[in-house]
Design a protein around this nucleic acid. Sequence first.
RNA 1: CGGGGAGUGGCGCAGUCCGGUAGCGCACGCGCUUUGGGAGCGCGGGGUCGCAGGUUCAAAUCCUGUCUCCCCGACCA
Length: 419
Amino acid sequence: MRLSQLFTKTSKNVPADEEARNAQLLIQAGYIHKEMAGVYAYLPLGLKVLENIKRIVREEMNAVGGQEVMMTTLQPRDIWEKTDRWDDKKVDNWFKTALKSGTELGVGLTHEEPIVDALSIYVNSYKDLPLYVYQIQNKFRNELRAKSGLLRGREFVMKDMYSLARTQEEHEKLYDQAVETYHRIYGRLGLGDATYRTYADGGIFTDKFSDEFQTLSEIGEDTLYVDEARKIAINEEIYTDENLAKLGLDKSKLVKKTGVEVGNTFHLESKYTDALDVYYTDENGQQKSIIMGCYGIGISRLMGVLAEYFADERGLVWPEAVAPAKVYLARLGNDPAVIKQADELYEKLTNAGVETLYDDRDARPGEKFADADLLGLPYRLVVSAKTQEAGKYELKARQSTEVRQLDETAVMKSLGREQ
RNA sequence: CGGGGAGUGGCGCAGUCCGGUAGCGCACGCGCUUUGGGAGCGCGGGGUCGCAGGUUCAAAUCCUGUCUCCCCGACCA
């Protein structure tokens, strides 16, 4: 992508209506556009980041055998009444709308009911189970207060997976596998060290704990007690001596921290399947309950967490796995020979599969360096009269201060895919 | 939903207390000079001051209502 053709621009001003660092940076850098409180649009570079996060999550979901679907945003009332989640007194953050006829509809805030309802047509026998099904979709929640930029919106992108199992033992296996997958995802996103499996309240219909995945961060809303050696934590909500004993946690080894919930997994037992009358027939012709688990990851929230977590005083610092491009190619000056060389280098990088944002604008060096820092691509590559004279290019990693002088072969090798 | 703060060209702000018909920086357009950490000079375009009423000869400024945004709290992925 040539920067001269990208419609977004960076701004020198920090948006006044955002306090959260993630939103300030992402808006300033032109990654997202605020539509209203808690509702953000993704602009070209921001969409790339979002899609990269989705790709990683999707790869891992597929790797455990997840089958991807896309459920609907508009929701019929009846299936939610069957599970007693339609009433605003029961679920208070619904967005609701209506047909012209007056029939009430819900705007999807989660999808246990529609998933189970859709699967009911296909899942009848023990031979049809177990299974994982997932989707990546926008969720709508009428929060009383949106806040913290991408971390708590009213419309947000979420991956939600559901497991259906025949027995409790089978469910546990699926559940543990999903948890492992979650660890892999956070690892790939560069958040592995900062993200803790955290025991939390399991909800009203199970005596099991749920698991949250909490990334330690100042901006977090949750208070945790962390066992750093075991890489495990317990949410303050359930921090009682009884629970500590049940979980085998040693109070003296726990440290109080703040975290952002970047995922959670729940044991749903057979609450939804039973309520929606979905059962399977076992080998003996007996009708049995289906044991369910659900597994959420806030995709857009993760983008906010990554922006927040890896930023420095100059701007964003994307992990390579999600960066909108790998290299920021800055051409300094308008000397025809330099332009020619930079154009050719851009083409070579592109042809070699190295995603490059080419700053071909007629702008001064300072502006280009500042934008390179703000946009936060992993590498900055400079072509100028000076580098041309030296017969080398300048390569600098965003998170480092070291500038390396490399010839073309070395540049291609450093940025090549084999790395 | 309770408490606090704020809405003025695309963005960031001043002006509001004390009413007199809107200004600065950035961005944008043109010209010249510049080119290794957000350039300089000159010229130029763009705003019914969130919205609706009211007071007044006159309202960004005063009064009433209303909408929106941010922060804290409660609630929540």
